[in-house]
Every structure is written in C-alpha cells, then in structure tokens.
C-alpha cells in the first residue's frame, strides 16, 4: 500500500469546496466503517449462538438464518433495555 500516493502538496492545492466535499466523504466513510464494525461483532456473537451443529454445506439453512435474524434483533433490544434501565437508575437514584 503506497500511503504517499497523494502528497501533502497535492492536498494543499485543493479548493475550499473540494476540501468540504472530502470532509463529507470521510464522515460518510467513517460511518460506514462503524456499521461494518458492528456487523463483524454481531456476526461473531450470532455465529456462536446459531451455528451449533456440524458444518454440512456452504449455505445457511432456514433455521440458522432465522436464528441469525432474531439474534441481531434481540441483541439490539437487549442493548436498548440496558440503556433504558441505566436511565431509570440515574433518575431514581
């Protein structure tokens, strides 16, 4: 990976408009990366929960797919429950 493909001199030549465009682009890419990061960690968790048998083929079967979908939704529900409860603990303390 050639990290110096775009030099600092190149960047200083950019117009303000281009700099703004780049900023928006990078913000967007960072959000994408954060979402992908969550997908990695959710896949990690849900694989352990849902793919419990022997590997007998390259495709997710129906049960496994449903389990994975439920796993994602319930994980997020659980996450939300924690946040909500923390909030009640904070306000009633």
């Amino acid at each position: 990976m050639d990290a110096s493909a775009v030099s600092a001199a190149d960047i200083s030549k950019l117009s303000d408009r281009e700099k703004q465009e780049l900023q928006a682009f990078v913000a967007n890419e960072s959000q994408k990366a954060r979402i992908q990061q969550s997908v990695h960690s959710l896949t990690d968790i849900c694989w352990t929960k849902c793919i419990t048998g022997k590997i007998a083929g390259g495709k997710l079967d129906r049960t496994e797919e449903t389990c994975v979908q439920n796993c994602v939704d319930r994980f997020m529900d659980a996450n939300m429950t924690v946040l909500k409860h923390l909030e009640t603990m904070r306000t009633t303390a």
């Binding site: 997908v39 990695h40 896949t43 793919i51 590997i55 495709k59 994602v72 997020m76």
Partner: peptide, 23 residues
C-alpha cells in the same frame, strides 16, 4: 469443512448486515 464453513460464515455476515441495516 473449512471451505463450506467459509461460505457459511460469509452468508451469516450478509444476513447480519441486512438485518442490522434494516433495523
């Protein structure tokens, strides 16, 4: 087993991605 597992893991990744982004 490994090659099947690979494909399956990628399938799971895609299923999680769809579900998560949908949510």
């Amino acid at each position: 087993c490994f090659t099947q597992c690979m494909e399956k893991y990628m399938g799971a990744w895609n299923a999680v991605s769809r579900q998560y982004i949908g949510r």
